[in-house]
C-alpha cells in the first residue's frame, strides 16, 4: 500500500521538552488511521507539522511525495480539524463554510448543508456565541464536506453529545466508503472509534510505540484470570503488561497472540481468558511504557 504521508526521523524540541523523538511513521493512502495516545504525547504536534502549521526541529515530512511547507498545492489537499480551531470574531458558520468551499476543490455544498441539519447547527449565530458542541460541529462539517485527500481530525468531538458523535462517525464512514481518502482520527474515546479505524498508531512521550493494523491488535493481548499460582505458572516468561489481584485470584494481561496449545494449556489449568479491548490495550501499553522507562531509565520498549 502506498503511503500518502511519510514521516521520517521527525524530532520536535520545545526548549527543554522533546515533543517528538525521532518519529518515523507512514499513513497509508485511502485508509482511516486512529492516532492514539495520552494528552501531551505529541499527537497534535505531529499533525500540525504534517500540515505545515508548525516546524520540525529535525527530520522530514512528505505528503504525496512532496514537502508540505509553503507548498500551496499540497496544502490545499489537506484538511486539519483542530480541537481548538480559531475563527474570526464576528463570523458565522456560513462564513467558515464559504471559506472552506473556496479552499477545498472537492468541497460538497449539499453534503455540508445536510450535515448542518443533522447537527442542528444554528447558522445565523456568530461562531463565538456557539456552544462548545456546536463549535465542534462546525469543524466536523468542514472536515467531512471538504473531502480533502488527507483529513486530520484532532479530538473533534469536544462538547458533542453521544447522539451527535454517532452522527459524526456514521456520516464519516458513509462518505469515506463512497469517497475513499486518507483520514487520521485522533481520539481519547478509543472504544467509540475502534471499529472505524483500519490502522492504529499509538504515540507515547513523543515516540511511536504501536504502528499496526487494527485487526492484528485485536488478538494481541489477552487477560488470563484464575487462581494465582496457576496464572503465574502460565504467564512465566511472557510479557505481562498489567496485573490485578483480588484475594487468591489474579488477572494478568499478557502480550502476544495465544496459540492453540496455549488455549489447551489454559483449559487444563482451569484458567479463563478475557478479550482486551483496543482502549484497554492502549491504556495498558502507555502505562507499561512509563513504568519501563522509570525502572530502566533507558526508554520505552517498541
Amino acid at each position: 500500500m502506498t503511503a500518502a504521508i511519510e514521516v521520517d526521523h521527525l524530532t520536535k524540541r520545545y526548549r527543554e521538552t522533546l515533543a517528538l523523538d525521532d518519529v518515523t511513521v507512514g499513513f497509508a493512502e485511502n485508509t482511516i488511521t486512529g492516532l492514539l495516545g495520552r494528552n501531551g504525547a505529541g499527537k497534535t504536534t505531529l499533525m500540525s507539522i504534517i500540515t505545515a502549521q508548525n516546524f520540525a526541529t529535525h527530520g522530514t515530512v512528505r505528503v504525496f511525495g512532496r514537502e508540505p511547507y509553503e507548498n500551496a498545492d499540497v496544502l490545499s489537499r489537506m484538511c486539519f480539524v483542530r480541537e481548538s480551531q480559531q475563527y474570526q470574531d464576528e463570523s458565522k458558520p456560513h462564513h467558515a463554510f464559504a471559506a472552506a468551499r473556496m479552499f477545498f476543490a472537492n468541497w460538497d455544498q449539499q453534503l455540508a448543508e445536510s450535515l448542518v441539519e443533522e447537527f442542528r447547527l444554528p447558522m445565523n449565530r456568530t461562531i463565538k456565541k456557539l456552544s462548545r458542541g456546536q463549535l465542534s460541529a462546525v469543524g466536523v462539517i468542514i472536515g467531512i464536506a471538504s473531502r480533502a485527500e488527507v483529513t486530520f481530525f484532532d479530538e473533534p468531538y469536544l462538547g458533542l453529545d453521544a447522539v451527535a458523535r454517532q452522527v459524526f462517525y456514521d456520516r464519516l464512514l458513509a462518505d469515506y466508503a463512497e469517497h475513499p481518502r486518507t483520514i487520521v482520527l485522533s481520539s481519547h474515546l478509543i472504544d467509540e472509534i475502534a471499529h472505524l479505524v483500519e490502522n492504529v498508531v499509538v504515540i507515547d512521550d513523543g515516540r511511536i510505540i504501536v504502528d499496526t493494523d487494527a485487526e492484528s491488535l485485536r488478538g494481541e493481548a489477552t487477560t488470563i484470570v484464575g487462581q494465582r499460582s496457576a496464572v503465574e505458572t502460565f504467564t512465566a516468561g511472557r510479557r505481562v503488561i498489567h496485573t490485578d489481584a483480588l484475594g487468591n485470584t489474579l488477572a494478568a494481561t499478557v502480550l502476544g497472540a495465544l496459540t492453540e496449545a496455549d488455549r489447551q494449556a489454559l483449559a487444563r489449568a482451569g484458567l479463563d481468558t478475557e478479550a482486551v479491548s483496543l482502549q484497554q490495550l492502549v491504556v495498558r501499553m502507555t502505562q507499561h511504557a512509563h513504568q519501563a522507562q522509570t525502572t530502566t531509565t533507558k526508554g520505552a520498549p517498541r
Binding site: 485508509t31 482511516i32 464512514l173 458513509a174 469515506y176 466508503a177 483500519e198 487494527a214
Partner: peptide, 18 residues
C-alpha cells in the same frame, strides 16, 4: 454490498471487504 455491511455494523469498509 461491502459499504452496506460497513454502515450497518459501523465498521471500516476495508474490514467488511475482507
Amino acid at each position: 454490498s461491502t459499504n452496506e455491511l460497513a454502515a450497518f455494523h459501523r465498521i471500516n469498509p476495508a474490514t467488511a471487504g475482507k
